[in-house]
């Protein structure tokens, strides 16, 4: 009697055996899988390494405190030494500093829609995105256009007469 009862391939009560041909075919398939895995596994892990990267926060002095008047908005560039892949570079970023009744606010100049660089227009007291028409008020709140969120605020501190901004690098 066949062990598997109803496979239909058995004759005269023989046990079902894997043929030599089938065994080899499966082996070739398994070896191929192992070979591809040996190449693509490490390569995918290698390419996915940015996912494991964690950002560092760094405090940077950007402006003398006295240089920012009450109610004033200033576009302030500052340079930080950052690791860009395989090299250390001095990268210049820009931050908008606003002094208002709630203190000093540091706004990131990237539009929250798709990252275009916003521009402050002093006469309108608004930030305008040149790409898709996003408009923010001087505190970074969305006034109109497609941006889904207010402008990103960086942490700010005043120490030793300087305005410090904390930025991810």
């Amino acid at each position: 009697m066949c062990e598997c009862q109803n496979c239909g391939n058995c004759e005269n009560g023989q046990k079902k055996v894997v043929s030599r041909r089938k065994f080899m075919a499966w082996s070739v398939g398994a070896i191929n899988l192992a070979v591809f895995g040996a190449v693509f596994g490490p390569v995918l892990g290698f390419l996915g390494s940015p996912l494991r990267h964690r950002q560092m926060k760094q405090w940077v002095p950007v402006l003398d405190e006295g240089a920012l008047g009450e109610g004033e908005t200033k576009e302030v560039p500052f340079t930080v030494r950052v690791k860009d892949g395989y090299e250390m570079v001095d990268r210049t970023y820009v931050v908008y500093l606003v002094r208002s009744e709630e203190g000093i606010v540091a706004l990131d100049p990237s539009c929250t829609h798709l990252g275009c660089r916003i521009k402050f227009q002093a006469d309108k007291n608004r930030y305008f995105c040149p790409c898709h028409g996003g408009v923010f008020d001087n505190r970074g709140t969305v006034v109109s256009g497609p941006p889904p969120k207010p402008l990103v605020r960086h942490a700010v501190e005043v120490r030793e007469g300087k305005i410090w901004v904390q930025r991810s690098v």
Partner: peptide, 21 residues
């Protein structure tokens, strides 16, 4: 779509890099 250039804005001098306070 506007031309790629805006009139350049007046910029403050970029301070040199510094470490954490």
């Amino acid at each position: 779509t506007p031309p790629p250039h805006h009139p350049p804005a007046a910029k403050a001098e970029a301070p040199t890099p510094d470490g954490t306070p």
